[in-house]
């Protein structure tokens, strides 16, 4: 480490700077990479109670009749969302492995066609890992014509591996108005009404 000192920057300053700038760029990118990393991490661990946003395979598990889990449903409207939105039942007791369908009822009381998206969240967070939805309205945007109502099905089963200590699982849906951000195919579904 006893290089000759120099009054001028030495030739390899450039190399250090390049490497440092590369690190800076890399860390800036890493900041954004944290977004998918976080999502992957959540899917893997149930961190923060997110559920997977795509259909799970149909249950092939043995139904575990030795225990039941209470599944509660909570429906909420985001601010400015005028729909009526509720589950047909407040809660249901299911055996792990057993497939159930629950309908969520929505009506659009306004005078205009609207598109909504339901965002799920599960408490406790770790239970999200064991909640398998084979069919859910929450995977897609939901169009609803003015004054219309609909029953939106959600089919699910609990993985029999769900830990013993989970007796209650709460699934909440928050309904957001996505009319302004609707995808074209969803809008097309509503077109006949116009």
């Amino acid at each position: 480490m006893s290089e000759a000192p120099q009054t001028e920057p030495r030739p390899d300053n450039g190399r250090i700077i390049r490497r440092l700038l590369l690190t800076v760029a890399g860390m800036f990118a890493f900041g954004f990479a944290l977004v998918p990393l976080y999502e992957a991490f959540c899917d893997l661990t149930g961190f923060n109670g997110r559920t997977r946003n795509e259909a799970a395979a149909v249950s092939t598990h043995q139904v575990d009749t030795s225990r039941t889990v209470n599944v509660q449903f909570i429906t909420r409207n985001a601010q400015g969302m005028p729909w009526d939105f509720k589950a047909e039942m407040n809660s249901v007791r299911v055996h792990p492995g057993e497939t159930r369908v629950v309908n969520f009822l929505a009506s659009n009381p306004t005078g205009s066609n609207m598109v909504a998206q339901a965002i799920p969240s599960v408490a406790p967070g770790e239970a999200a890992l064991y909640l398998n939805k084979t069919e859910c309205f929450c995977f897609n945007q939901q169009p609803l014509q003015a004054g219309a109502d609909t029953a939106m099905p959600m089919q699910f089963y609990l993985d029999p591996d769900i830990p013993e200590h989970i007796h209650t699982l709460t699934l909440s849906y928050t309904l957001y108005d996505m009319t302004a951000n609707a995808t074209p195919d969803v809008l097309a579904q509503m077109a006949p009404a116009n």
Binding site: L20, T23, V24, A25, G26, M27, F28, A29, F30, G31, F32, L34, V35
Partner: peptide, 14 residues
Amino acid sequence: LIAVMPVLAGAVTM
């Protein structure tokens, strides 16, 4: 600083 200031920049950008 090199490691984390860019992450802050990313956060404010988001």
